[in-house]
């Protein structure tokens, strides 16, 4: 009887694993498809039936970074031979690279990518910095109305971006902060600060008070104890919080769409705007998407032990 039961359970287990494999393949198919489109020749990107096997190439990434126009006649063989290899790939597609003098003109993508990096990194450092101090304050000292204050801090995170964006847009316009890096950085700090306080408070609560108390007895000031004892203990938590804040700022779309249009525009509003009208070159869009998603994918693996905690604002710690 027992044998029947356990072999039945083993069969269920095996079936579940098959289910897991199928589900994983279905879930990863969209990501695989966008990644593979980035490496396809343009002619194979939108075929019916879809092209699965192809010779991967990086032409779309070259096209992503430079400004180019359609050529109206075939390229002169001497010019072709004199061009560097990457430019030849563009000429193969019947296009030529635009230059000012001898300098290759860059497309909008590299500057948007840089904007995303600058804005996400700066806002993360500041939000996590402030959040760490505040979390320590809440974790170690008695604060009047602590629960209400923490609720207030969390509730700022729950505000729909569009609701906040309307008055912020008017205020930014009045002081000239629209389409500036600093403008978006401030918005992203405000957006991430509450998250950072809540997550860091969880990490701070886990560091035994006795560590600092021992240091205080040894003659450290509270400030020294914080910097020399607590911060090193909280390093993992700070890193995890920072990665979460970075990803949030990196991915943010609504504020960036409303507050920026060129100079400080980040990648999320820029990448879809490439679709434009007419026949889009999906290989270039896919290349831009691939490069944009890559850091997030890497960070997700780096974070895997803290994901649950992060997405629940530190409420569930496993």
């Amino acid at each position: 009887m027992a044998a029947v039961k356990s072999s039945g359970r083993a069969a269920v287990n095996r079936l579940a694993v098959v289910g897991v494999i199928i589900a994983t393949l279905i879930f990863l198919a969209p990501i695989y498809w966008i990644a593979s489109t980035a490496f396809k020749p343009r002619a194979l990107a939108t075929t019916v039936p879809p092209t699965v096997l192809f010779q991967p190439e990086i032409t779309s990434f070259i096209k992503l970074f430079v400004k180019r126009v359609q050529m109206n006649k075939a390229v002169d063989p001497a010019t072709y031979a004199a061009a560097p290899w990457w430019e030849q790939r563009i000429m193969d597609n019947g296009e030529r690279v635009l230059r000012t003098g001898d300098n290759v003109q860059l497309s909008g993508y590299p500057s948007r990518f840089m904007n995303s990096l600058i804005i996400a990194i700066t806002s993360t450092v500041l939000a996590v910095g402030m959040g760490t101090f505040t979390a320590y304050g809440f974790s170690r000292f008695r604060v009047k109305g602590e629960a209400d204050l923490l609720f207030f801090i969390l509730s700022t995170r729950m505000l729909p971006p569009i609701v906040v964006a309307i008055p912020m847009f008017l205020m930014y316009r009045a002081v000239g902060l629209t389409d500036t890096h600093i403008g978006l950085i401030i918005l992203y700090i405000a957006f991430n600060l509450s998250f950072s306080v809540w997550l860091m408070k969880g990490f701070m609560d886990e560091i035994p008070k006795e560590y600092e108390e021992a240091a205080l007895v040894d003659g450290y000031t509270r400030m020294q104890a914080f910097f020399k004892i607590v911060l090193p203990e909280a390093a993992t938590g700070i890193a995890a919080t920072a990665v979460f804040c970075f990803i949030t700022a990196w991915n943010e779309y609504a504020f960036a769409l409303i507050m920026t249009n060129r100079r400080a525009q980040t990648a999320p509003p820029f990448i879809p705007s490439q679709l434009g009208s007419g026949l889009p070159d999906w290989t270039v869009i896919a290349a831009g998407t691939f490069l944009f998603l890559l850091p997030v994918a890497i960070f997700t693996f780096a974070l895997r032990g803290h994901l649950l905690r992060g997405v629940t604002f530190g409420a569930i710690r496993k």
């Binding site: 879930f27 999320p268 998407t289 997030v296």
Partner: peptide, 15 residues
């Protein structure tokens, strides 16, 4: 399996 939720909704919508 957790990758999708870490991505930018705008870019996910696009692809």
């Amino acid at each position: 399996l957790l990758l999708p939720m870490m991505m930018s909704a705008a870019v996910v919508g696009l692809f």
